[in-house]
Design a protein around this nucleic acid. Sequence first.
DNA 1: AATGAATGAGAATTCATTCAT
DNA 2: AATGAATGAATTCTCATTCAT
Lengths: 208, 208, 208, 208
Amino acid sequence: MTHKALRKEEIIRAGIEVFGRNGFQNSSISEIAQKANVAEGTIYQYFKNKEDLFFSIPEERSKEFCKQLDLHFQGITGSVNKIGKLVWYYLYFFQTNPDYARTLMLEMRVSKSFLKSTTCGSLKEFTDKVLGLLQEAQEEGVIRKGADLYLCRQLVLGFLEHVVTRWLLKEEKYDLAADHKEITDLIMNGIFHVRGRPGLVGEGTSLS
Amino acid sequence: MTHKALRKEEIIRAGIEVFGRNGFQNSSISEIAQKANVAEGTIYQYFKNKEDLFFSIPEERSKEFCKQLDLHFQGITGSVNKIGKLVWYYLYFFQTNPDYARTLMLEMRVSKSFLKSTTCGSLKEFTDKVLGLLQEAQEEGVIRKGADLYLCRQLVLGFLEHVVTRWLLKEEKYDLAADHKEITDLIMNGIFHVRGRPGLVGEGTSLS
Amino acid sequence: MTHKALRKEEIIRAGIEVFGRNGFQNSSISEIAQKANVAEGTIYQYFKNKEDLFFSIPEERSKEFCKQLDLHFQGITGSVNKIGKLVWYYLYFFQTNPDYARTLMLEMRVSKSFLKSTTCGSLKEFTDKVLGLLQEAQEEGVIRKGADLYLCRQLVLGFLEHVVTRWLLKEEKYDLAADHKEITDLIMNGIFHVRGRPGLVGEGTSLS
Amino acid sequence: MTHKALRKEEIIRAGIEVFGRNGFQNSSISEIAQKANVAEGTIYQYFKNKEDLFFSIPEERSKEFCKQLDLHFQGITGSVNKIGKLVWYYLYFFQTNPDYARTLMLEMRVSKSFLKSTTCGSLKEFTDKVLGLLQEAQEEGVIRKGADLYLCRQLVLGFLEHVVTRWLLKEEKYDLAADHKEITDLIMNGIFHVRGRPGLVGEGTSLS
DNA sequence: AATGAATGAGAATTCATTCAT
DNA sequence: AATGAATGAATTCTCATTCAT
């Protein structure tokens, strides 16, 4: 069992590398097998088919992501601080896992069949965590009562995914996590930074 | 020339439909040719290859998008109102062009080769417009001096793209534009709606 | 059209040869393509898949068989004589078309999927002809009223198919048509040749 | 040894089932191993390879067939009656062993490599028995002197095999043994039932 | 004797692109 | 300009068989 599990991980590792570099369509099982030091047929002992291997990738990584994120949350109090931490770790994680980042951001995130796959559920742990954080913030009074937390989450995730995606498309040439503070600030306060006009904040911009 | 232009448009229209339904990889030139009522070989008279046809799609549509957006801006003053309009029209446009939405959001937006293609530039008109709008807002004092407008734009586009993408992946079952006001509100003010504590807004959340 | 039809026939001819030598499973499209002097892909312009090509084989040959059989029937009167002719031509035809014989006798004849295929119907012309001949014989009084003509046909076809099949399995080493007279005799009179005991014939052996 | 023999029988039983349902090519060792409750590798302790297992199937069954047939012959005198019995038991046996029937009739019977296999000999006991029966009939005067008994046997076996094969291809929907009397009658007397014209019987139809 | 993980050869099929007509 | 027949490269997946344990 340990042996089988190791083999499986080895294949997934090879998959992350190859899929991350060439994308799903342009990756061949034969190349992955080579990287994993197994015969092509062996891959089919561990995975039903190419897609099954592809979709197995996030399972392991997203678990690891959540585990590490929890560790980083240790000792931090206040939802605002946690959100800041989340932003930083999110960017840091994908910066240090660029192969996985490419697979997740450029392929799975926009794939209908991935959404239908059971493996997609492994990402839910993370998005659930984000929602929980926003609820916590709401309970703390940081987010106003009545705000649609699902939309808030879309803001957070959409922004972060976009930042990571741009970085990937720009050949990962700059420091992805550099702007984490400003990003957090924008998430919290929006683009509308008008000081000294409290009446407008959260009210005056309603476009009704 | 009119004849050629018409033919080309006809092929692009067929391309939007087929690519939008099946994606780039699962679409065949033969099917597109059939939909366009031309022979397969004819397509190669108008486009260098399959990718060229694919990347030609946004050109026309994004021009149309910008033109219509400008019309909708007519008579509106104030960058805040314009941003609200932008959000609404963005959602409305993709709701009414789902085939194009799928192609742009689920494929081109995450494609490195699209980024490199000249055709990608046709989208720049729109992102430039957004940046211009944000500059206008900054000049109006709506956005604080010193804010990174590029990051602001990433917030806006990332949020909007995410909202559209979710809608596409969820089989386009609900009204995409329904939440446009709340989305605009979140863009402007962020998730951090603390009232009556003006000092904190835009300052207190800095996570330094 | 003439060109396409010629190509198709050429491919079928190659198919008869290759399938006949190696059987369906052990024949490869690549070998057939080579024999037909076309690229592998070309075969898929004329046939949906390997099975489609395989099942297309009898169509042409069985038509030819029936046509020739009709010619051989010309000028012959009396169903008994025609049955004799049928037996001879059946054996003669398969002796001179051994590739086709192998395909038909050793593969198609015992294939459920062939039975379901539309192409199987092309053989029906022949079996219908046999049934018609038996009806003619019945009307002439040669076959007794009340005999089950379908069973009679099974006797005829089963016997003939068996004789051809044995010949094929024995490497086609002897003259297949040599025994045609005796075979016809057995079909007509059965194995029960008791002379001078008319009472027994057709009656005494009934096992009721 | 008893243990080994049991194991072997168990594997053969699984083989009959799986081969009978899917045919040789579409059956996998893995499925047979599963049905037999052994590991894949174990099969290779008892059989040289897949084909060896396949060809081992008739050995057991045909022995059983002959044994039972002998029992059914007990107390019956007269070759005519025995032939009737043979026909009935043949049909009855395959009706009650459809998996084996499919394997034998649709695959082995038309396989050159089976003919070459040593296992094919196990069927010879039966065909020898049929020949013996025909000799007995000839000695009794039931079959005329000079008749080619090998050809007679081909009539008998070809007819019976054809009847069983049709039944298999027609999804085994009707009672296979129902027509056994009429079949025997046709075997004995042929299709040529002319009564009261003794001179013609066995003579007049000779097509010389 | 039994296992079952690993192997790797082998083949059908698709489809973008070309080019002679 | 338009056609569409021909091409052929490229890749997934299956599965009988082996062999170390």
